[in-house]
């Protein structure tokens, strides 16, 4: 596998910041605008969420952004047409993240083909079981040079982590705790011990920590134990309250990275 995502990891191995936002939120036609501002402000990876009516792994913030995006009229065909000029505007790796059903209805083959066509580098489908991935999805992902990202949790056994590592070819999404998205609060010593346990396994894939990463403190802490971290809900909240999208995205990302913000 050789794409923008895998290339990124060959030259940058720490303090990687991945930012998630839901396509179609807050307004229908801001996908490229948000992606561009996010990349320019210094995000290393962008995850664009494909909204779904029943996002069971998500907390309130992302649920509401999904619902609003659907109410705004977002759907996959439209998303791909919005992303047609993605690669003229954004250079950083882009992943699509979402639930399986809309992908199934769109058609796996067509979905992967469109994703590759617009310059998407990888996919995160949290309800795609490993068994299905191996049997059906993997050859199609690989044919279109799309990286696959699996998640792991504090409850994932060592044996299964090894298997996840073998089947992943982008990064491993390390869930910081057993929770839905959007939990806040400081990272506990127990969580740090878990991050270290995983770090010691010397996995072949880079690790990005997600769920509960919301600010400079949690981002910095996560980066001490992994290659970087992923922020979703906290960024969505910023978008929801934003009056000046470009400026607020810039401030949010620079603050998370601990850079000086010029007002």
């Amino acid at each position: 596998m050789n794409n923008r995502l895998t290339n990124l990891f060959t030259h940058k191995k720490e303090n990687l910041l991945a930012i998630y936002f839901t396509a179609g939120f807050p307004a229908l036609d801001q996908t490229i605008e948000i992606a561009k501002a996010t990349a320019e402000a210094g995000a290393d990876i962008i995850e664009i969420g494909m909204p779904f009516s029943d996002p069971v792994a998500d907390g309130e913030t992302i649920q509401q952004s999904n619902q609003q995006a659907l109410d705004n009229g977002m759907h996959l065909e439209l998303l791909f047409s919005q992303l047609a000029n993605l690669r003229k505007e954004v250079e950083v790796p882009v992943l699509l993240m979402g639930y399986l059903n809309p992908v199934m209805q769109f058609g796996l083959e067509k979905f992967c083909q469109k994703a590759a066509e617009v310059g998407v580098d990888g996919l995160i489908l949290p309800d795609l079981p490993m068994q299905e991935y191996e049997e059906t999805y993997r050859p199609v992902f690989e044919q279109h040079n799309l990286s696959n990202v699996f998640l792991m949790t504090p409850q994932t056994s060592e044996e299964r982590i090894r298997k996840i590592d073998a089947l992943t070819n982008g990064f491993i999404y390390v869930m910081s705790s057993a929770s839905t998205t959007g939990k806040t609060g400081a990272i506990s010593t127990e969580q740090e011990a878990y991050f270290e346990r995983v770090a010691k396994m010397k996995l072949k894939n880079p690790r990005l920590i997600g769920f509960g990463i919301s600010d400079n403190a949690s981002f910095s802490k996560a980066c001490q134990h992994a290659n970087g971290a992923i922020i979703g809900s906290a960024f969505i909240k910023t978008l929801a309250q934003s009056q000046q999208l470009n400026k607020d995205i810039g401030t949010f990302i620079k603050t998370v990275k601990g850079e000086t913000v010029l007002s």
Partner: peptide, 11 residues
Amino acid sequence: GGAFIPEILHP
């Protein structure tokens, strides 16, 4: 059928 669940519910 199958088990299309987030990783956290796997155990």
